[in-house]
Amino acid sequence: MFPPVDQTRRRFLSAAAGGAAALSLSPSRAAAPAVDPIYAAIERHKAAAVVWDAAVDVWAKLPDGPEPMSTERWIERERINDASRDAMDDAGVDLINTSPTTLAGIARALNYIREQMLQDDGVYMPSSLRLADDTDGEYPVAWIDAFLDAIEQAASELDRAGKAVQA
């Protein structure tokens, strides 16, 4: 009633279908470049700057006037400032510690930091970094030093991987 099933043919067709599916998926995945993490770090930093600017606007509207500010108002003003500044500093630390993984990422990071320095006088960058030291615990460092270290490390990694263009 039912003809015998050719197991060899069935295996071949299954393997062929699986191979075709793998071929249709593999090129698109292989061709897609890895996303450089510096772009996300820059976007997080920009978002934190917007929040901090809004908090500063609210903070500035709380009257300082001739009468002393109430304790409750003073506490609220400082809470707004501290919360938004902490988030801003966290995003800044994340930014300067994120090593770009592409030459385009290095260029974008350098341009973004230049914007921070020239247009905004570095106000959105972390203000009091302390890095671990092998001798006495911690030492202060400017955020630009930490950022340049990350860029140097990224360039060295690209060079070692043979991804950098030889001049």
Rank of each mutant, 00 (worst) to 15 (best):
G19T: 04
L23F: 14
L23S: 09
L23K: 06
S24E: 06
L25E: 13
L25V: 11
L25G: 11
P27A: 06
P27L: 08
P27Q: 04
P27R: 10
S28F: 03
S28E: 09
R29N: 11
R29M: 11
R29W: 01
A30G: 10
A30I: 13
A31C: 08
A31N: 10
A31S: 11
A31M: 14
A32H: 15
P33D: 08
A34V: 05
A34M: 09
A34T: 03
V35C: 11
D36K: 00
D36I: 00
D36G: 04
P37E: 09
P37T: 03
Y39F: 14
Y39S: 03
A40Y: 10
A41R: 00
E43Q: 12
R44L: 10
R44G: 03
H45M: 03
H45K: 09
H45S: 06
H45Y: 02
H45F: 04
K46N: 05
K46I: 08
A47N: 05
A49G: 10
V50H: 01
V51N: 01
W52Q: 05
D53T: 07
D53A: 09
A54M: 12
A54F: 10
A55T: 11
A55F: 02
V56C: 03
V56P: 02
V56R: 04
D57H: 09
D57S: 07
D57R: 12
V58P: 08
V58Y: 14
W59D: 12
W59P: 00
W59N: 07
W59L: 02
W59F: 03
A60W: 14
A60R: 15
K61Q: 15
K61F: 11
L62D: 08
P63T: 09
P63Q: 05
G65M: 10
G65E: 12
P66V: 14
P66W: 06
E67K: 13
P68F: 14
T71G: 10
E72N: 06
R73M: 13
W74G: 08
I75K: 08
I75V: 09
I75M: 04
I75P: 13
I75R: 05
E76R: 12
E76H: 14
R77P: 07
R77D: 01
E78F: 03
E78H: 07
E78V: 04
E78N: 14
E78G: 02
E78A: 06
I80G: 01
I80L: 13
I80D: 03
I80C: 07
N81Q: 13
N81W: 15
N81R: 14
N81V: 03
D82A: 08
A83L: 05
S84R: 01
R85C: 03
R85D: 05
D86P: 15
D86A: 12
D86C: 13
D86T: 15
D86H: 15
A87S: 04
M88T: 00
M88N: 02
M88G: 02
D89H: 15
D89S: 10
D90I: 06
D90N: 07
D90R: 06
A91T: 04
G92R: 05
V93M: 01
V93W: 07
V93G: 00
L95D: 02
I96L: 01
T98A: 00
T98Q: 00
S99I: 03
P100M: 05
